[in-house]
Design a protein around this nucleic acid. Structure first.
Lengths: 150, 150
DNA sequence: AATAAATAAGATAAAATACTCTTAAAACTC
DNA sequence: GAGTTTTAAGAGTATTTTATCTTATTTATT
């Protein structure tokens, strides 16, 4: 798969938050239940995003997580980088270290373009914009479609 | 990563064979040494490609593997399908089952295009053609560049 | 101050992927 | 036909990814 499961869960949770009221904290329990993601696993992933400054968390009753100012401007690309790292956008399709225009593998030239198109797709729009569109068009964010943008 | 390691090893071995004299069998030992891939692991992967009809094998002294007629016309796409399966070209970027134009996820429309560009890149040229270009331009097929197209 | 609700963090477990080892089967050489 | 070389196949191990469980720590409420 293109993205790890951690990354996909992180993206879905990010879109969830991007669709909610700005500034409010949403509990991990609620997010994990609505998006049907393992609570503990999601906790780990969002901790990473919090450590990266893309989210903010607050402990205690009525605590939870929300997008930080940085997170509100972030794109899918920023989230992918924070969770899966830059590998997808830098590595050789054949896994050869140091592959580049200097010492290319047979796929290098084609792959550079394809890689860029993946990168551009993820960079194109901010989470907030995607969530806005998702809200308008009632796009899915879960397998069973149980989540509603409200 | 985009492709599994099995898949990358399979592609590299396929390009190796595509660059060699048509019809000759090349031993797994030789391939694994030249391409710096674990012998036993490579064996498994090429067995898969043989079972799939993309390669032919011959046992005993002077035995080995070679591209079948089907394999000679194959593209990288065919090899990827044989090893990693069609998931990369069919699955939702957010992993949602049944995601499609009927019930799209927020990334669906963008992802469909990007996915197609990956598919087209892999379908564009046959192994033989890529190997021919690699030979002409001395492209790398190993980390250290020890392999030579000769 | 005590209790409860929530995230943080560490340890553990399960599953998938990557890799290795051993034995069998086929084909050649003598 | 005995011995050797090679792929085939199955079992076993290691590592990484995914997921769970347990114990802190922080904050609010009473």
């Amino acid at each position: 798969m293109l993205l790890s499961k951690s990354c996909v869960y992180g993206l879905r949770a990010s879109l969830y938050l991007a669709s909610k009221r700005d500034g409010d904290f949403y509990s991990l329990k609620e997010i994990s239940e609505e998006l049907d993601i393992s609570f503990h696993f999601l906790t780990k992933i969002l901790q990473q995003l919090t450590a990266d400054g893309l989210m903010e968390s607050y402990k205690g009753p009525n605590g939870g997580v929300r997008l930080s100012d940085k997170g509100k401007e972030a794109t899918l690309y920023d989230m992918v980088i924070a969770i899966d790292g830059p590998g997808l956008f830098t590595q050789c399709a054949l896994g050869l270290p140091g592959c580049g225009s200097q010492e290319p593998c047979p796929l290098h030239e084609s792959w550079v373009d394809t890689r860029a198109s993946i990168e551009n797709m993820l960079k194109r729009t901010s989470l907030i914009e995607i969530a806005k569109e998702g809200k308008e068009k009632h796009f899915r964010l879960t397998a069973e479609g149980q989540f509603s943008w409200q």
